[in-house]
Design a binder for these strands. Structure first.
Lengths: 340, 340
DNA sequence: TCAAATTGGTATAACGATGTATCAGATGTC
DNA sequence: GACATCTGATACATCGTTATACCAATTTGA
């Protein structure tokens, strides 16, 4: 098997110098039509593709983008990835996804390796409890970076996210307006990231109507954990009639949990999720939720990074998109109201 | 803001030559303890990380691995990615995921960009209808490659997959043994990949017992599509009492579809899935399925690639793991048997 | 018709690391 | 004390591109 073809091979096959071949390959300089054709033919024949490392090293441009995320399995994130890839790929970038699984140590190793290979830019959902050194690492290596979803106050990075607090407040008000007076908040891994903002919104909404006390219950962001957490929450506080969930995965788990103990979501207990993942609409019963279009969000995110790469000296900016309340069948007035 | 630190900077801060600094950084050569310490201190202080491009170009070793997959959103695949990353990251590699979304054109662009950036190896679930040129591209550039799940007969690549035909035959026999005589096969995108092998297993099982006719119904591999396809299938063939599904996503969709029209999965119609994704166990009712541990499968896959990279001249090999039948609540004897 | 401008191509120095050859000085051996 | 050996560091060529400076041949202009 032949060695991997290089520019030198192409040049010698075409009978020109490497310099000429290089100019033809990237459409620069002034080369006559027939030499150009000879070079292109040689390249085609050898299946030549330029070595991006060498090119990037010399020219300083790099079209390799990383998307470092905390959780690749989440279907909302999967849709975001689609949006990001679509935009960046049409702009000529290659997107590679790194899954930190929300582990800051794993994240550190991944980002170090990422920097070593000198990629062109980073989209980043920081893992829970990301230490400052990791931020400084990115800064020190001048990596064009846009954070996503989880905003790092302490760092000067561009940011794209969701109006979490405002949306959660809206969801909470909606439940209270239906007549609920014991509204719990369920889900979220840790004292980190979007959960903080969503809980702030939840608290703010409750504070605005003095007759409901906040009640917050933690749970990892997946269905299994949501199911278990709902059971535990209900055991501890059987009087709860409504639950604001940190995400749809938890909400669907909670829905399954309620059904397991003979309660009907949307009648005995109201549930509201966040994200509007594909499962939300086909769940039984269909889940009420705060919807953000993850595909468009991904495009927005990618666009922000491209702008940063194109104009490295522009001031950093923060973009926050609003969520829309989607009412399906897990939200209804509490039972005592329905009896009236 | 300072420029990105390079070896030269480290060397000058430490008061040594670049050559010395290089040797210290990679623990080669013979360097005295105190110079070593000086260099390391300088590197630490500057947050120096070597430029992997330059290193790889010169030394020829590259610890960047790509995982090109057809569908990142599928939770089975997400678990595979975890297994792959865990193994490769402890071996010092960086894993980047590329999502072709089963589009051969997108895949071609991604793999071209991947080759350009000269990564060290590729794990690959070929997109549906992958043209031969894509294979030849990888061959021409001598990319160490292991295919996953979808076996390419025509190419000499290592392969890791599942005993699809055998497992599906086992599932089909199980349903027939329960007494079912109208057993459909549901799901699969196209005339491509694992679907072919699974259907072959289904057909073989039915052929071994002459009293059941094959009935095959296509559907994309997601819940929404599975739901719709189940409705259409039932409308066309209301007498069906059992369905072998191409995957759990379709099976769960089918389950939801049946419930939507008032049928009870596991009583009126038996369903059996494939993959044992997390949702399968907590679905209502819990789904019977063919289980393969995706995490371990991912590790196996990664190990195969490492072996290929380490020993480029060893003969190519194919690994196929067997699936285990998990009986939950969507499989039971058909109703007429239950009445007896 | 001779200088000036244009065309089409090449030689060569980077980019940031690595690895080998080399070398000066310290140590050891008999 | 002469010669071999070892130690610790350095110079330099190299990896595969790109960008610039340059040059010879051709065309243009007055």
């Amino acid at each position: 098997m032949a060695e991997r073809p290089k520019l030198e091979t192409v040049a010698s096959v075409a009978g020109v110098s490497v310099a000429t071949a290089s100019q033809v390959m990237r459409g620069a300089g002034r080369i006559s039509a027939k030499t150009r054709e000879r070079v292109l033919a040689a390249a085609r024949q050898l299946k030549y593709l330029p070595d991006g490392r060498a090119a990037a090293m010399r020219s300083g441009v790099n079209r390799d983008i990383g998307f470092a995320i905390h959780e690749i399995a989440n279907p909302f994130n999967a849709e975001v990835i689609s949006g990001v890839s679509d935009l960046l790929e049409t702009e000529g970038y290659l997107v590679a996804v790194l899954d930190s699984r929300d582990n800051p140590e794993r994240q550190r190793k991944q980002l170090e390796a990422f920097i070593r290979s000198s990629r062109g830019g980073l989209l980043w959902v920081p893992a829970a409890h990301t230490p400052s050194e990791t931020l400084e690492l990115l800064k020190a290596h001048q990596m064009p970076t846009v954070t996503f979803l989880r905003h790092l106050q302490r760092a000067q990075f561009d940011h794209v996210g969701i109006e979490d607090a405002e949306a959660t407040a809206r969801a909470t008000h909606y439940l209270a307006d239906l007549g609920h007076r014991t509204i719990a908040y369920l889900g979220g891994n840790a004292t980190f990231g979007v959960r903080l903002e969503r809980i702030a919104g939840y608290r703010r909404a409750l504070a605005e109507r003095s007759d409901v006390e906040p009640l917050i219950w933690e749970s990892p962001d997946n269905k299994r954990a949501g199911l278990d957490a709902m059971l535990a929450l209900h055991r501890a506080h059987p009087d709860i009639t409504a639950v604001v969930c940190n995400g749809d995965m938890v909400a669907i788990g909670a829905s399954l949990g309620l059904q397991k103990i003979g309660l009907q979501p949307g009648r005995d207990v109201s549930l509201i999720g966040f994200d509007d993942i594909p499962d939300a609409g086909i769940a039984i019963p269909p889940l009420s939720t705060m919807a953000v279009d993850p595909y468009q969000l991904g495009r927005r995110l990618a666009r922000t990074l491209v702008d940063r790469i194109t104009e490295p000296d522009s001031p950093t900016a923060t973009v926050r998109v609003t969520a829309e309340l989607i009412i399906r069948e897990t939200t209804a007035p509490p039972v005592q109201f329905q009896l009236n």
